[in-house]
């Protein structure tokens, strides 16, 4: 479903952004529908950059990214907009990912307002309620702001917001790094459940080999922007 071939990416640096620092050096990987693939490596090895390239929030310096049979490598912002909802990313810190001035209900309804403009307000409210229940929260949480929810609850709101877009591919970037062991298990189980329900492909970025082994069928090990090892469980 998503396939990257010989991806490279360099950050600009220096006073006039004329210095190029290569951070991703020829990475090729693939994730199929309904499959969880792990990406593991040390801090600063380029894991998050690869995730951001695959969902095209960054444009690669060279290489190709295929989504199904579409080459999305150099699509412009307007060209990629129709498939943007299919490629989603779940971030490490949900508190800073959610808008602090929006309630959970407003955050979850925002994608409907952007991508399903023909829905009537009543239909949006009913879909938002379905989603909040699907991720294990209740309707009373809809009126709460991010600072009134725990880390695990905020991560559930983020997952509900992503599910509103019915994504085909999800990059989960250390989704449980800031959570404790029990909430971590709840969120990872929830990801497994929504993957089964929606048939998503998931790229799970983590630096914990035990989580990767528990969740994924394959893993890519990355070091200094290059794939060092591939392993099938």
């Amino acid at each position: 479903m998503i396939r990257a071939e010989h991806l490279t990416y360099s950050y600009s640096s220096g006073c006039f952004a004329n210095e190029k620092i290569p951070v991703i050096k020829g990475v090729s990987l693939s994730v199929r529908s309904n499959e969880s693939v792990g990406l593991i490596g040390k801090s600063g090895s380029g894991k998050t950059t690869i995730g951001r390239l695959l969902v095209r929030s960054l444009k690669p310096s060279s290489g190709t990214i295929w989504y199904n049979d579409t080459n999305i490598t150099s699509l412009s912002r307007s060209q990629i907009r129709p498939i943007r909802n299919k490629l989603q990313m779940l971030f490490q810190d949900p508190q800073s990912s959610l808008n602090p001035k929006m309630t959970a209900g407003q955050s979850i309804s925002e994608p409907f307002n952007l991508y399903h403009k023909k829905l009537k307000p009543g239909e949006v409210i009913s879909k938002v309620k379905d989603l909040i229940n699907e991720v294990g929260l209740s309707n009373e949480h809809l009126s709460r702001y991010p600072n009134q929810l725990s880390g695990g609850q905020n991560q559930r709101v983020m997952i509900a917001r992503i599910l509103a877009l019915r994504p085909a591919f999800l990059v989960a970037d250390e989704p449980t790094a800031s959570l404790d062991v029990s909430v971590q298990a709840q969120i990872l189980r929830l990801l497994q459940k929504v993957q089964d329900d929606y048939g998503m492909g998931i790229l799970l970025i983590s630096h914990d080999p035990e989580i990767i082994e528990c969740m994924c069928s394959r893993v890519y090990e990355i070091e200094n922007g290059q794939i060092l090892n591939k392993k099938i469980f």
Binding site: A185, E210, M215
Partner: peptide, 15 residues
């Protein structure tokens, strides 16, 4: 039981 090496079996509910 919640630990990944023990099968990721969470405690239901929250604190």
């Amino acid at each position: 039981r919640s630990m990944p090496k023990n099968g990721l079996n969470p405690i239901q509910g929250s604190s």
